[in-house]
Design a binder for these strands. Structure first.
Ligand SMILES: [Mn+2]
Ligand SMILES: [Mn+2]
Ligand SMILES: [Zn+2]
Ligand SMILES: [Zn+2]
Lengths: 144, 144
DNA sequence: TCCTTATTGATAATAATTTTCATTATGACA
DNA sequence: TGTCATAATGAAAATTATTATCAATAAGGA
């Protein structure tokens, strides 16, 4: 948020609300969900502004888009490491993966073998968190 | 294609056309593109059938969805290895990455640290192919 | 406090994908 | 090889996701 200020962006109510919602969540959220929840802090916020803010936050590396098999996307906070995510398909809990330097050798190998210059990569792990493993059928939200 | 037959699906003209187009392409294709090109082999094919066929092929592991920063998705063939892709952002050429067993240790480590059971993963590398590196500004399609 | 203008929200417009449903073509079987 | 049940198709309509417009508003520097 302060990064945005120093980048010349205004610190608006709407933006603060979106950031706050994302910070409070421990899982990924869809734009629609962010919108609904952000109204808690900025009742007048519109869905369009949510989209705009999410794009801004992605651009500045504060959040990252999560991809699924079906059409819709989610957004989750990037904390410290390289920004890759481990997603529970039961409860949507999303945590960041550390130690993706392990990918370096693979990258190097691929560059050598293909002649490509690799500029970016996307890594996403999907599974079941400890809690969701114990729920027999169709695991569901035990987190907010 | 023969997998589909043994799975009880009918081998229709439309499906054959879609598979053929995907086989002939050495890059990812969007549904719209698949539709346009598939008409070569099945002039009556509709876009809806393309969507349905792509979903079927994804389901059966024959193709995989490619994710981008912007909204739209592409589909690329899965050949032999684990199904991860290296995508040229210049010409859309898409080749499969071998050697993703390199990810095993990372997986194991993550499982131990988080308690998650990892069921699936998505890895996508983006960069510039040899040819596109030599094109100064905004690299473009030199492949079909 | 005043003023400039970046940002917003409502609305409309696009783009992407799915549903519906009557028609067609596949493939099992006689 | 012809018949038949039905899986699959295509046209059109309906949804969903996302983006563009534009007049009104609110940040924040002076
Ligand atoms: Mn990384
Ligand atoms: Mn995606
Ligand atoms: Zn869970
Ligand atoms: Zn290229």
């Amino acid at each position: 948020m302060s990064d945005l200020k120093s980048a010349g962006y205004r610190l608006t109510q709407s933006r603060a609300a979106v950031v706050r919602i994302i910070d409070e969540s421990n899982g990924w959220l869809r734009p629609e969900q962010v919108h609904t929840q952000a109204k808690k802090y900025c009742p007048s916020i519109g869905l369009v502004t949510v989209y705009r803010t999410l794009a801004l936050l992605v651009e500045h590396g504060y959040i990252r888009r999560i991809h699924f098999d079906d059409k819709c996307h989610g957004y989750a906070r990037v904390e410290l490491s390289h920004g890759h995510h481990l997603v529970c398909r039961g409860c949507n809990q999303t945590i960041e993966i550390a130690g993706t330097e392990d990918l370096r050798p693979l990258m190097k190998q691929v560059q050598n073998e293909t002649g490509f210059v690799i500029e970016d990569h996307l890594l996403e792990l999907v599974g079941l968190c400890r809690e969701c493993q114990h729920i027999p059928t169709r695991p569901r939200n035990h987190h907010g």
